[in-house]
C-alpha cells in the first residue's frame, strides 16, 4: 500500500515537472527568436534605413521604399477589408443571429481564418493579376484585405454579443429602427472591442509574405503607383536574407527587427485595450 502511494506521488511529480519543462521550452523559443532579432538587427538600425532605397547588390542602402510599400498596402488592405468584416459581423450578431445562413457563414469564416495565406495569394493572382496582365500594389492590398476580413468579422461579432441586451431594448423602446440602434448604441458600446479587432487584423496582415510574393511582387525602386509592383518589407526580407551579399543580409535582419517589433507592439496594445474593457465591464456590474 505504501509502495503504491509512493508510486502515485512520483508519477504526479514527474508529469507536473514535465509540464513545467514544456512551458519553459515554449518561452525559451520566444526568447531565442527575440534575442536573435535584437542581436542581429540592432547593428543595422540607423537613420539610413528610413531615408534610403533598397540598394543594388554589394552596396549600402536603406528600406524606405519597402517600409512605405508595406504601410500603404497594409493600410489599403485594412480600409477595404475591415468595413466588410465589421458589416458581416453585424449581420451575424444582429440581423441573422440564429439563421441557418449565419451558422454556415460563421463556419466558413472560421475556416478562412486558418486557411493558408498562400492560397489567398494564388486566388488574387488568378482573379486580379492575370486579368490586369501585371503584378500590382493593388493586387497585394486586395490579398491582404481578404486576410483581414475573417479577423475583423470574428471580433466584431463577439464584441457586439457582449453589449448588454438592455441597451438594445431601450433603444428599440424609443422607436428606433435596428440600424439606428446598431449605429448609435451598439457600435459606440462595442467600440474598443472593434478597435482591438482592427489592431489584430493589422498585426496579422503586416507580416504576411506568401500572398504578396505573386501579387505585389517587389520593386527595387521608389514607386507610389498602385497599378505597378511595389516593394514591401516581408518580400524584401525574404529576398535579401537568402542572398549571398552581406549588406543585403544586414538589411534583412534590420527589417525583420522592425516588422516583429511593430507587430508585437500592436498585439500587446490590442490586449491592453481588451483588458481595460474587461475591467470597465467588471466595475459597471
Amino acid at each position: 500500500m505504501i509502495n503504491r502511494r509512493f508510486f502515485r506521488k512520483i508519477k504526479n511529480g514527474a508529469f507536473l515537472a514535465l509540464s513545467l519543462v514544456a512551458t519553459l521550452t515554449g518561452l525559451a523559443c520566444l526568447a531565442a527568436i527575440l534575442w536573435t532579432l535584437i542581436s542581429h538587427g540592432v547593428a543595422g538600425l540607423s537613420w539610413h534605413l528610413f531615408a534610403e532605397m533598397t540598394p543594388p547588390p554589394g552596396s549600402r542602402g536603406g528600406l524606405l521604399n519597402a517600409i512605405y510599400g508595406s504601410a500603404v498596402m497594409t493600410l489599403l488592405g485594412i480600409l477595404i477589408g475591415s468595413p466588410i468584416g465589421v458589416l458581416a459581423g453585424t449581420y451575424l450578431a444582429e440581423y441573422g443571429r440564429r439563421s441557418t445562413l449565419s451558422v454556415l457563414i460563421r463556419f466558413i469564416n472560421d475556416v478562412l481564418l486558418s486557411a493558408p495565406s498562400i492560397i489567398i495569394g494564388l486566388f488574387i493572382y488568378e482573379i486580379v493579376v492575370v486579368k490586369m496582365g501585371h503584378f500590382s500594389a493593388l493586387a497585394g492590398a486586395l490579398s491582404l484585405a481578404v486576410l483581414a476580413i475573417p479577423v475583423t468579422l470574428r471580433t466584431t461579432e463577439d464584441m457586439l454579443n457582449l453589449v448588454p441586451p438592455g441597451m438594445k431594448d431601450a433603444s428599440a423602446a424609443l422607436g428606433a429602427y435596428p440600424w439606428r440602434t446598431i449605429v448609435s448604441v451598439l457600435y459606440p458600446a462595442a467600440r474598443s472591442g472593434i478597435v482591438t479587432g482592427l489592431l489584430l487584423a493589422i498585426a496579422r496582415i503586416s507580416g504576411e509574405t506568401a500572398p504578396l510574393l505573386f501579387t505585389a511582387l517587389n520593386n527595387q525602386f521608389w514607386s507610389t503607383q498602385l497599378n505597378a509592383p511595389m516593394a514591401n518589407l516581408p518580400v524584401v526580407i525574404f529576398q535579401f536574407a537568402l542572398s549571398p551579399y552581406k549588406e543585403w543580409q544586414d538589411l534583412a535582419w534590420a527589417g525583420a527587427l522592425i516588422i516583429t517589433a511593430s507587430i508585437l507592439m500592436l498585439s500587446i496594445a490590442a490586449r491592453v485595450i481588451l483588458a481595460m474593457l474587461q475591467a470597465e465591464r467588471g466595475s459597471d456590474q
Binding site: A32, A203, G207, A256, S267
Partner: peptide
C-alpha cells in the same frame, strides 16, 4: 505573442 511572430521571422531564425 509567439503566435503573432510572422512566419518569415521563423524562417530566417
Amino acid at each position: 505573442l509567439l503566435a503573432a511572430v510572422p512566419s518569415i521571422i521563423f524562417g530566417i531564425w
